[in-house]
Design a protein around this nucleic acid. Structure first.
Length: 258
DNA sequence: ATGGCGGCTGAGAGCCGA
């Protein structure tokens, strides 16, 4: 299975880039975040013409997530964390190729100590409970998306500058670590144990040209699946192209089981 | 490094992202 995640920062603006990328990389699944499009405006037909179906949950102007796939989908599609009513559309999950695939757009948090920050930490705790249940049921799991957390010093271009700020504060990193403590594997880091690998660069400051980035998009896999990961890379080409998203796509490939 | 970018809405400038 070839599976990717990409925060596109408006699917309607980025649709040409997304269609180009699907054509060149041919992933089985692409999880996108920040679609910023209401469901009745979602580009179903354009994706279908490219050979992909989509399940999505969106809203006007903010948030919104979609799973774009050429695999057959089985079973129910989840469009929010179970047992919660979230006015912000931040999660879509489906059974794809025998794997429970969970696409997340974790809240940004705005600033340490803000209401948005508390909402982010609560959201991550609810995600933890849900993923624990999935794993307890013995299901193969991939959770991928924009986590808005840089887990380690090497995931931040200037850790001292970012210390105690949102995306890199202790409580956020601890919440991410608790997801790994479930047994999930950060496959991009596992494939690049020591390398500098960023997924986001600020539009300002010439950040991309200077490679002042953060690694805040992630793909986590359950242990047996992670053992079959044959590659995990960040494709920086779309970030370098015309009218880019500020995030680059993260692409991983898994060998079939036996 | 104060904000510089870019998307959104609604028709201004302000909000939000990270």
């Amino acid at each position: 299975m070839k599976i990717a995640t990409w925060n596109v920062n408006s699917l309607r603006v980025r649709l040409p880039q997304v269609l180009d990328w699907l054509a060149s990389e041919q992933p089985d699944v692409l999880a996108v975040q920040e679609t910023k499009v209401a469901d009745d405006q979602f580009p179903v037909m354009e994706l279908r013409a490219a050979g992909y179906e989509a399940v999505f949950t969106g809203e006007k102007a903010y948030n919104g997530v979609a799973l774009i796939t050429r695999l057959p989908m089985h079973g129910p599609v989840l469009k929010a964390l179970p047992g919660t009513v979230d006015p912000q559309q931040r999660l879509v999950a489906a059974e794809l190729g025998g794997v429970h695939v969970v696409n997340v757009y974790v809240p940004n948090g705005q600033a340490v100590g803000s209401d948005a920050y508390d909402y982010k930490l609560e959201w991550l705790e609810r995600l933890h409970r849900y993923l624990a249940d999935v794993l307890a049921a013995g299901r193969e799991l991939i959770v991928l998306g924009d986590f808005n957390v840089a887990p380690e010093d090497q995931d931040v271009y200037d850790p001292l500058l970012w210390a105690n700020t949102v995306l890199f504060s202790g409580p956020e990193r601890a919440a991410f670590r608790r997801l790994l403590d479930l047994g999930l594997v950060d496959v991009l880091r596992a494939q690049n144990p020591h390398g500098i690998v960023y997924t986001w660069w600020d539009y300002r400051f010439n950040a991309f040209r200077r490679n002042r980035g953060l690694r805040i998009d992630h793909l986590l896999a359950s242990p047996a699946l992670a053992a079959r990961c044959v590659s995990a890379t960040v494709d920086t080409r779309p970030r370098a192209a015309e009218r880019p998203s500020d995030h680059a796509p993260l692409l991983a490939e898994f060998a079939a089981s036996r």
